[in-house]
Design a protein around this nucleic acid. Structure first.
Length: 273
DNA sequence: AAATGAAACAACCGCCACAAG
DNA sequence: TCTTGTGGCGGTTGTTTCATT
């Protein structure tokens, strides 16, 4: 807590200030004091009540836990639906506003619920990504990149089925198609300095026949896990036509400036292992 | 029964806006 | 106008509880 908020003239020394979980005694003291004197003016309340807590801490404890009209227990499906609707309308920065629409629920509670929900979704998406996206990388990105290295003349020798060939042709019309035959360049939101993540091909054995360069696969995939468009990628990977949809997903990601707003925090989403 | 992971909950921090002196 | 105190908010982190293996 900032010195400004704590107040240098507080009778309770900083070192004496209690932190962490509230005891039953502290709760009782706070309730009694607010019952007798009302809420508000939290710093003086903290002082006069004898609690070794900051006014801010007292306020939070009262508003989020002790206030009589606080509703306990799980959110109802109706409440969850309301949260979802209002969140899609107002976004992350309006928890208090959302809470106003849900009597008895606090912004903190709603915020926690949403965060848990997003974490859960991120895990599920990542599971999907691990399985299906992996296949897609094997079946699409690796062969096409190999072709970039090897040269367009060998299209049909590497990919025999017609759908794959179509995908390859599509890729070559994609704005993100690499200009250099030895690298892909993906946008990466988290990288402020560059804005791009370059995934270079790695030639396994430079001394061998290097006309057919190949990715060192695990390294390649590890990098992919950083990509913030993985949400849309995963959605695509869950569908049948992985490769085609992967391209569409990549397009969407590029076109979607709101990516960071629709998730809790896209960086955060992918920190879970 | 123990270990592990996920979900829920509680609390704190930093920042900001506003009002009063 | 500037400073200070206060309240409020969103973001983050730590802890507890519950479920699954």
């Amino acid at each position: 807590m900032s010195a400004r908020n704590c107040g240098a003239d507080e009778p309770v020394q900083q070192s004496e200030l209690r932190r962490g979980s509230w005891t039953v005694e502290e709760d009782t003291m706070l309730i009694h004091h607010i019952t007798a004197h009302g809420e508000g003016n939290w710093n003086s309340l903290a002082r006069s009540s004898g609690l070794k807590r900051t006014g801010k801490s007292c306020r939070l404890r009262w508003l989020n836990y002790l206030k009589p009209d606080i509703k306990r227990g799980n959110l109802t499906p109706q409440e969850k639906s309301t949260i979802f609707q209002l969140h899609s309308k107002w976004g992350n920065s309006r928890w208090s506003k959302i809470a106003q629409q849900l009597p008895g629920r606090t912004d903190n509670e709603i915020k926690n619920y949403w965060r848990t929900r997003m974490q859960n979704q991120a895990r599920q998406l990542k599971r999907v990504q691990s399985d299906r996206f992996l296949e897609s990388v094997r079946g699409f990105w690796v062969p096409t990149t190999t072709l970039d290295v090897k040269g367009d003349a060998d299209y049909s020798s590497l990919v025999s089925n017609s759908s794959s060939q179509q995908q390859l042709k599509n890729r070559h019309h994609h704005p993100l198609s690499c200009s250099s035959p030895s690298s892909f360049v993906f946008p990466r939101e988290a990288d402020d300095s560059m804005g791009f993540l370059e995934l270079k091909t790695v030639v396994d054995s430079p001394s061998a026949n290097t006309t057919a360069g190949a990715y060192k696969y695990p390294e390649f995939y590890h990098s992919l896990e950083d990509l913030s468009f993985a949400t849309t990628m995963s959605a695509a990977a869950a569908a049948d036509d992985d490769c085609g949809l992967l391209q569409a997903a990549r397009d969407d990601w590029m076109a979607d400036d709101e990516t960071t707003d629709t998730a809790w925090n896209t960086d955060e989403l992918w920190q879970f292992s």
